[in-house]
Amino acid sequence: MSKSVSSMQSRRNFLQKIVFNVFRLAALINGLALFIIIYFMIANGWKAINWTFLTQPPMDSMTKGGILPCIVGTLCLSIGAMLIALPIGVASAIYLNEYARPGPLIRVIRIGINNLAGIPSIVFGLFGLAFFVVWLEMGVSIIAGALTLGAMTVPVMIGSTEEALRAVPDTYREASLGLGATKWQTIYRVVLPTALPGILTGTILGISRAAGETAPIMFTAAVFFTPSLPVSIFDEVMALPYHIYVLATAGTEIEATRHLQYGTALVLIFLVLGMNLIAIIYRSRLRKRMQ
């Protein structure tokens, strides 16, 4: 009797160890993948990065010079996309989560949003070309690209904002309403400030995605080559992801520009990390203030 109990005990412990190690392996593979990618980029790209690379336009059929127009272009496009997606996304999420009473209309809207989030980015690119560039006569421009990227980011923003709003305890809403606050005062003064760190997380993900996309901007905003920096939102721009794509597939010297391709990719990664870092620092300061 006692023997069978102890053998069962050791079997249970053995199983527990196996499961634990499987989970640990899964986490390790993840971390390793990220490490390998970053290492690969740095190892191949760091030699390309210098002051000229960061501050000059491309020269000699893009085999020399820098990528300044691409950096500026990507910054304009991703910030523009967030300026469009953030207010629309947050406002929609507030409506859906705080005001709308459940019903068939709301269900249809939700299904629409979920499907929108799953549409391939090239489809957004074609939509942007047909709708913003051609039909609204914006031409290939920052504004057309930012609107296309924004449209693509809105469903992500709605999703993450709704999640952040749902995480705000209902007792906060009740306490506020119980003190004679209106619904809007409750949302503005209690719910939104409490949800802000979560909303910022969504914004971070949105910016990262918008900055790295190629397909939505290749027909709507990005050009093969322009040495000048944009002066208005109706100008076309170069962009980092599209530049990588061009150098790696369509350039005249694909092999000779390999280090420039890695260098550009490295700059893109650090640009996204930099924007994320600003949001992360702001978020942790918000959290600390609430604690």
Partner: peptide
């Protein structure tokens, strides 16, 4: 006025919690 089952102060300062009802 209403006081709830679980204490539910807002994630604000002590002062702002009490001032909240006045401000709104």
């Amino acid at each position: 006025g209403m006081v709830f089952q679980k204490p539910n102060p807002f994630p604000k300062t002590i002062f702002e919690n009490v001032a909240y009802g006045l401000r709104v």
